[in-house]
Design a protein around this nucleic acid. Structure first.
Length: 446
RNA sequence: GCCGCCAUCGUCUAGCGGCCUAGGACAUCUGGUUUUCAGCCAGAGAAUCGGGAGUUCGAAUCUCCCUGGCGGCACCA
């Protein structure tokens, strides 16, 4: 049985990369009725952001994914399992105590010192580091890249496995993830590409601990348009931020899974269920994809149009003008549904329903004053204020005067909405109501 | 610098030796519907498959070299 895991570290807001890794791991397991594990890797106390745990859990479940098991590494660490494993490796000679002072976390250079000076000093305490062997080939088969990848052990450095006492003797990722993946019987490890260079360390840890390594696959990095890995600095793609900008979960999800994975038939539209059903690791891409907002916008528009009007009203409420009347949003929804790409576009198409527009009179074209004053007269006389009556009345007026239909409606549009781009104007006027419509015409004629 | 990965339209990608004078989607442009903008429908342009050598009757597909991009080199994950 396949068992996968999503193992984020709670150091900040989850972003597209997290969602994608999670979705792939989930689909890989669920495609064959396997188990999906959520594991919080919170062994870095300095970068720990407490709220992040809940936000991550919410992200996973809000996108419809359910974990079968849940673990928190800091809690597991209290049982001493990592420390015990590290000490065992020291006893066996596969690791050693190191008393070098920790390197500055902000160092920007690179190190050529691969063999730690403490490796043969036989200290009895300190941080525990792995003793990387000399002249060994270390190989594994990457199931994403579908190829064997090999390192020469002489290029690998003696990495820390267990931190020193002042860091609570917590494990580093190298130890925690390998041990956990084994104990949790994870069959397929799917993780970010940035982990590939430390895979040989993990392979050695598995070996020295006497574990059979799981299948391992590294995902491509999502690149920002400016180049380089997507991050808070480049692209700002936290899930929360995107939702705040008016993107639907369906769109974010669909867009994300297609960044680095594609089905044989190149199908584009996927719900989570579709994705799980269709998923095939052969579809993984090897080259880094670029985050392209236009495609996201297209998915968003598509999913907005799939919503029922009622659903859309719910979704749009937070984006509507302040104190907007829900029943008014309700009336306008079908007029803007085809026009918006993001929920946040709603006010720009509907603001005039809620607020008196500022009309720039230079926008008016030919005969505006004449057309608007005559329109005011016939509309004022209208008893049944509905779209059909309004339209019939106005068309009659247009014919009588021999005006250009388009010009007339454009002038009416500008007078009532203040904009050249709006929903159909007769529908809009019908919703706006007789009183407000006439008021606005009068204002323009002053 | 050292180690590793990658390379098909602007972008996401299909392609795994002949079906490719390279297909789809987004974006772009044109036309239609139309009172604007959208939406929808129809159509167009867009990659000599990063470059160069090979292998082969035949290469986007295999090999090598080059170039370029990306990642890593922490008691961070």
């Amino acid at each position: 049985m396949i068992r996968t895991r999503f193992a984020p570290s709670p150091t900040g807001m989850p972003h597209l990369g997290h969602l994608r890794t999670c979705a792939y791991a989930y689909a890989l397991a669920k495609h064959s009725q396997g188990d999906f594990v959520l594991r919080v890797e919170d062994t870095d106390r300095k970068r720990y952001v407490p709220e992040a745990v809940e936000i991550i859990k919410n992200m996973v479940s809000n996108f419809g994914m359910k974990w079968d098991e849940y673990y928190v590494q800091s809690e597991r660490a209290q049982k001493g399992i990592y420390k015990k494993a590290a000490e065992k490796l020291v006893e066996q000679g596969y690791a050693f105590y190191c008393q070098c002072s920790a390197r500055d976390a902000k160092h920007e250079g690179y190190s050529d010192v691969l063999r730690d000076p403490c490796r043969d000093k036989k200290f009895k305490e300190g941080a525990i580091k792995i003793r990387i062997p000399d002249n060994e080939k270390i190989t594994y088969h990457d199931f994403v890249f579908d190829k064997d990848i090999t390192w020469d052990s002489n290029t690998i450095f003696d990495a820390t496995l267990l931190k020193s006492k002042d860091l609570e003797e917590l494990p580093t990722y190298h130890l925690a993830a390998t041990l956990d993946d084994h104990e949790m019987e994870i069959t397929h490890v799917l993780r970010g590409y940035d982990w590939m260079p430390s895979t040989p360390i993990h392979l050695l840890v598995y070996k020295y601990l006497g574990y059979k390594p799981p299948e391992i696959g590294h995902l491509t990095d999502i690149q920002s348009i400016e180049g380089g890995k997507l991050s808070k600095r480049k692209g700002s793609t936290s899930i929360q931020q995107l939702e705040k900008e008016g993107y639907l979960k369906e769109a974010i999800f669909n867009f994300t899974i297609l960044l680095g994975w594609a089905p044989k038939d190149n199908r584009e539209l996927f719900s989570l269920e579709d994705f799980v059903e269709t998923f095939d690791p052969k579809g993984f891409q090897k080259a880094n994809p670029v985050f392209n907002r236009q495609k996201l916008d297209w998915f968003n528009g598509y999913y907005i149009r799939q919503k029922t009007d009622d659903q859309l009203v719910q979704l749009i409420e937070p984006f509507a003008p302040k104190n907007a009347d829900v029943s008014l949003i309700n009336q306008t929804i079908h007029l803007i549904k085809d026009r918006i790409a993001k929920l946040s576009d709603y006010p720009s198409f509907s603001g005039f329903f809620f607020q008196e527009p500022v009309v720039d009179k230079s926008l008016f074209i030919d005969q505006a004053a004449d057309q608007l004053s005559q329109a005011l007269v016939v509309l004022k006389a209208l008893d049944n204020w509905n779209k059909e009556e309004i339209e019939a009345t106005l068309k009659e007026l247009i014919n009588k005067n021999g005006w250009q239909t388009g010009d007339f409606f454009m002038n009416l549009r500008i007078a009532v909405t203040g904009s050249k781009f709006t929903p159909p104007i007769t529908d809009s006027v019908a919703i706006l109501g007789k009183e407000k419509t006439l008021e606005r015409l009068i204002t323009c004629l002053k």
